[in-house]
Simulated scan of single mutants.
Amino acid sequence: MVYGVDMPMTETASGRADGGVRSIMRAVDLLDLFDAEHPWRPLREIVTLTELPKTTVVRLLATLEGLGLVADRQDGTYGLGARFLQWVRLSEAMWEVSEGTRRVMRELVDRCGETVNLYIRQDASRVSIAQQEGTTTVRSVVTVGAQLPLTQGATAKVLLGAAPAPVWELLERRHPEVDLAALRREVAGTAEIGYSVTHGERELGASSVAVPIRRHGRVVASLSVSGPTSRFTADRIGGYVDAVTDAAQRISAAGLGSVEVFL
Rank of each mutant, 00 (worst) to 15 (best):
V142R: 01
L69D: 01
V158H: 04
Q147E: 07
E45C: 07
G15D: 15
R214D: 12
L256R: 02
R106T: 05
K157Q: 13
A36V: 13
V138N: 04
L160Y: 03
F84D: 02
V21M: 06
Y195K: 03
A124W: 11
A188P: 11
V70R: 00
R102Q: 11
R173Q: 15
R174D: 05
E65S: 15
T190W: 10
I129D: 02
T233R: 13
T50L: 15
A188C: 10
T50C: 14
L118P: 05
V109C: 06
N117S: 06
V225Y: 03
D29R: 15
T12R: 14
T143P: 00
T115C: 05
S125C: 09
G113S: 13
G217D: 08
E260P: 03
V104L: 01
A71K: 13
D179F: 12
L69V: 02
G239D: 13
T56E: 15
D18V: 08
Y119T: 01
R22F: 12
A62F: 08
L60A: 07
L69E: 01
L43I: 10
I193C: 14
R59Q: 14
G100T: 04
S222D: 04
V209M: 07
T233G: 10
L33P: 09
L223G: 07
M1D: 11
S252E: 09
T229K: 02
A165I: 05
L108N: 02
A82Q: 13
K157S: 07
A248I: 02
F262S: 08
S14T: 13
W40T: 11
T136S: 13
K54D: 14
L204R: 11
A254L: 04
D110I: 03
L61S: 08
H216S: 11
G19K: 08
S14F: 12
L67M: 14
I24G: 02
T56R: 12
V58W: 06
Q131L: 10
L170A: 14
G145L: 04
M105F: 02
W168R: 11
E203C: 00
W168D: 12
P164K: 08
Q132G: 00
V211Q: 00
R59V: 10
V244S: 00
T245W: 05
P176L: 13
S252Q: 09
D242N: 07
L183G: 09
R16Y: 09
S208T: 02
R121G: 06
I46D: 06
V211M: 01
T48Y: 10
T77M: 11
S230T: 14
R106C: 03
G217M: 07
P42Y: 13
V178R: 12
L183T: 12
R121P: 04
Q131C: 04
V241Y: 06
I24K: 07
V178I: 15
E92I: 05
Q74Y: 09
I46N: 06
I251H: 04
G239K: 07
L64E: 01
R44D: 15
R41W: 12
A124C: 08
V187E: 11
T77I: 07
A188F: 10
A156Y: 01
R16F: 09
E92W: 08
A181P: 03
G194E: 10
V88L: 14
R111C: 05
V70W: 00
F84E: 02
A163V: 01
S23C: 05
